[in-house]
Amino acid sequence: MSNTFHALAAFARLGWRETASDRFGLLARVILYSLPVLIYSAIWQATPLAGSGVSAEEATWYVMATEAIIFAPGYVFREVEEDIRTGAIEAALTRPVDYALARIAEETGGTLLRLAVLGTYGGVLAWFATGMVPFAWSALPAVWTAAGFGALLALLVQVAIGFLTVWVGNPAPAYWIWQKLVFVLGGLFLPLTLYPAWLADIGRLTPCAAILFHPASLVFDASPAAIVHVLSWQVLWLAAAAVLVAAVAGAATRRLVREGI
């Protein structure tokens, strides 16, 4: 057990280091991330927000947070897809550490580094643009944790989607649809609080909101009660996603050892 844990920790460290060594990749990510943040904050500046309960400053911070969470995992499903297509998964299956766990650990390392880079960069950017920080400094660890949980949840679902390669060959269309659902039901740009009440209520219950809206909503309210609320929703959905990944990975592996690649 502790062996597996040490091995997974090593995978995570390696993922972090490999992401760090790819300077161009990180730079490209920062540039790509800057765009929607810039665009959305310009849109918020131009939006007649009076009476909506959301200020332009808060909205800018909100978008900075949601985009950082979306950009942090990148396209993990493609890594899984490639492992299956190239047969690299076979080599991984002959190891004493489970492939899915190893892949998740490695991607977690990379994801957390990208989140740290994008979050710090975006935070500084938003701070300069708005001249304010929407939560107390003491809430910062909780905000980071919630953002990390959101990115991790997105990562787990992507790993499950990647395993679909075994059945459908190309998992990309499934991913794009899922991603757009996250955008809409998770409130990528428009916080759920600005949605029609019925849709906001549905959205809040979905894993999409646990990825984006719940953690990003801490820019409106980072009180201890709100933090507990956000983190508990996320833990719940992380557990559900873990079950989902285990089920899909298990079924995919069973099929692989029966049918080959």
Binding site: I43, L49, K180, F183, V184, L188, L190, Y195, P196
Partner: peptide, 17 residues
């Protein structure tokens, strides 16, 4: 689905400049 974001936006706000 992506366009729904804008549908929702204009449900809430009358116009964007």
């Amino acid at each position: 689905i992506f366009l729904l974001i804008w549908v929702l936006y204009f449900e809430r706000f009358p116009e964007l400049r």
